[in-house]
């Protein structure tokens, strides 16, 4: 038993040492060659979430292809609500003397303060994914450029596509994300606008917490109470997957249209099979890259920071490859 324990300790030590070694290679070596190369930090939300993982992988691929232009330090928190940890991450990045921080804030208000400190220290800050609260920014008298998709527009596109498959007055239901999330609120608004414009009857709007299991349970109860329901608009794909599973167990698959958002792998597969009517792609792998490009542009030209909208696209049976 003791032997095993010692082996473990050894293994962990070796792993730690090799991990440190890697970091040093990445950070120190290039500096000696080209000290003027900008150092860009990417501070992500939950790396447990496929969406952010794809974002990070996209950024790393971009850096590998443009290694001569900049260095990348990517890190993220373990779950999307760990605001404190993310503030610490930003501080750590500052002490690593980065030139720019590209951040997907876990909270649209709580992260403003530390980002302002970064800007005062002369660091370029670019906001991606979750937009900082406009009121907080105004109150502090700062502007942080937002580079990202218009979630409301994406949701409206999906809603309009859905409306073509329905008759005016048809009952539909919305499955919302976490109520406090900015992008969730934007998607809810987009869905509502599309449904109201097409004259649909929104009979229920329930919170599914972005989660498959929670959405599954909520949808199961909903379709019992609303037997005539024609469509479910889910604010992300995980919840759409949960909704489809609920319809399948109730034997109502194909009778009720489901739409999602994010175009995760499993959801695109379901669109192909016709189980999901549509989802919205916002090119997760490119989102961080757009932010990095914007940061590089600012560093290189010293131009005034501006917001930039990135593309969203509907993924439906007609467009899926």
């Amino acid at each position: 038993m003791k032997k095993i324990f010692v082996t473990y300790v050894l293994m962990i030590t070796v792993l730690l040492v090799s991990a440190c070694g890697k970091q040093d290679n990445g950070a120190v070596q290039p500096e000696t060659k080209a000290p003027e190369k900008p150092r860009i930090a990417l501070v992500m939300k939950s790396l447990a979430n496929e969406f952010f993982l794809t974002m990070e992988e996209g950024a790393k691929a971009h850096q590998a292809a443009h290694a001569e232009r900049y260095e990348l330090f990517a890190d993220g928190i373990k779950d999307e609500l760990d605001v404190n940890r993310q503030i610490q991450l930003v501080e750590q990045m500052l002490s690593r003397r980065v030139n720019a921080i590209v951040i997907a804030p876990a909270d649209s208000k709580a992260l403003v303060q530390v980002c302002q400190r970064a800007m005062e220290a002369g660091v370029v800050v670019i906001n991606i994914d979750n937009k900082f609260d406009a009121d907080v920014l105004a109150e502090r008298g700062i502007h942080i450029p937002f580079v990202g998709p218009d979630n409301r527009k994406g949701a409206r596109m999906a809603g309009e596509y859905l409306a073509k498959k329905l008759q005016p007055g048809d009952p539909v239901a919305i499955i919302e994300g976490v109520p406090s999330a900015y992008n969730g609120i934007q998607r809810l608004q987009g869905f509502r606008e599309a449904m109201d414009a097409a004259g649909m009857n929104i009979v229920a709007s329930q919170v599914g917490d972005w989660e498959m299991a929670k959405a599954n349970q909520v949808v199961s109860a909903l379709i019992t109470e609303q037997p005539g329901l024609k469509a479910l608009l889910c604010a992300n794909d995980s919840m759409a997957l949960g909704a489809v599973a609920a319809l399948r167990s109730a034997g109502k698959l194909g009778q009720i249209h489901v739409i999602g958002f994010d175009a995760i792998t499993a959801a695109v597969e379901m669109v192909r099979k016709g189980e999901l009517l549509a989802t919205v792609a916002q090119y997760a792998d490119q989102l961080a890259v757009y932010g990095i490009e914007a940061a590089l542009h600012l560093i290189e030209t010293g131009a005034a920071p501006e917001d930039k909208e990135t593309p969203v696209e509907l993924v439906s049976a007609e467009t899926v490859k």
């Binding site: 995980s238 949960g242 599973a245 167990s249």
Partner: peptide, 15 residues
């Protein structure tokens, strides 16, 4: 049973 109901394995399941 959880996976059978959702026909998927979710790494964030069961939080």
């Amino acid at each position: 049973i959880h996976c059978a109901r959702l026909t998927a394995a979710d790494p964030n399941a069961g939080i």
